[in-house]
Amino acid sequence: MDKRILDIAAIAAALVAPVFFGPYGHYIMCMATIYAMVSLSLNVLVSEAGLISIGHAGFWAVGAYGSAVLVERVGVPFEVSVVAAAGLAGLVGVVVGLPALRVRGHYLAIATLGFSLVLVHVLYEWDGLTGGRQGMFVQRPSLFGWSLAEDRQAYYLCLAIFGLLVLLVRNFRRSLGGLSINALRQSELAAQCCGIDLAASRLFAFAFSAALTGASGALYGAVLGQLSTDSFTLVVSLSFLTMAVVGGMSSVWGAVLGGLFLAGAPEGLRAFEKWQMLIYGVLLIVFIRVLPKGLASLPERLAPLIGGRR
């Protein structure tokens, strides 16, 4: 019961928070929410399905460019384009995952790595559609014709979509598909004996994760106002993974903490800009070793030390 109180408190805090910050703070909060969506998608992939992607920046790019092109070139309303971007990213996820998921886990990592490198290359070369080297400008997010010109307004949209995605993920975890994928992670053999289709379940989980990232990408492009291929490099994919590991991959709390980490770290580390990637790398190694479930598991790890209960 006290867990629910904590959840409500967190939602209230997220709703009230913009009051205490200026426009730049609102921008950071938008980014934190957008990153938290990616973190959520990695939660599904890594902790539910036991798979890994080193190319989630690629799906992020599919979402961002997909939505931007739909809005700018085709004239689709923003809210439709977010859904379309998610669908497109999911579809691309099927194409990338289809061959890799039939074999062992690390092939998926290699396939996603290759995919993201190639995708960025294609986006860079495809001048006519994406603006290539110059990048492209993207309209502010809008809702039913209302432009959300300020980051404070955009933040509430991001928050609402994040909430929606959280509900989706929770339902997925409880659905037959979610349970199958969980069973597969624990024992491929036992799960398959129960009649679970290994390839189909994993493919669905992977595509689902890619779609969540695609939705996040659509928001990212709109909030930032411009896109260039520099935002979707391998380093970004690895930063995503760092964020998911640091935050913790087995809960929504972890996703939120991860998002806050990735949005806040560049601010906190501004003086050490050159060292940022090194710090991420060290964090990855140290967290996996010391706190593999991330910051979100800190309370339960500390509880025995403080209270001695349980």
Partner: peptide
Amino acid sequence: APALNVLISTLGLFFVFNSAAGI
């Protein structure tokens, strides 16, 4: 640890060596 954790650590190695060389 699970194979996945080791794999993530090697990605950490990627970061560490890549940026250490740059620094």
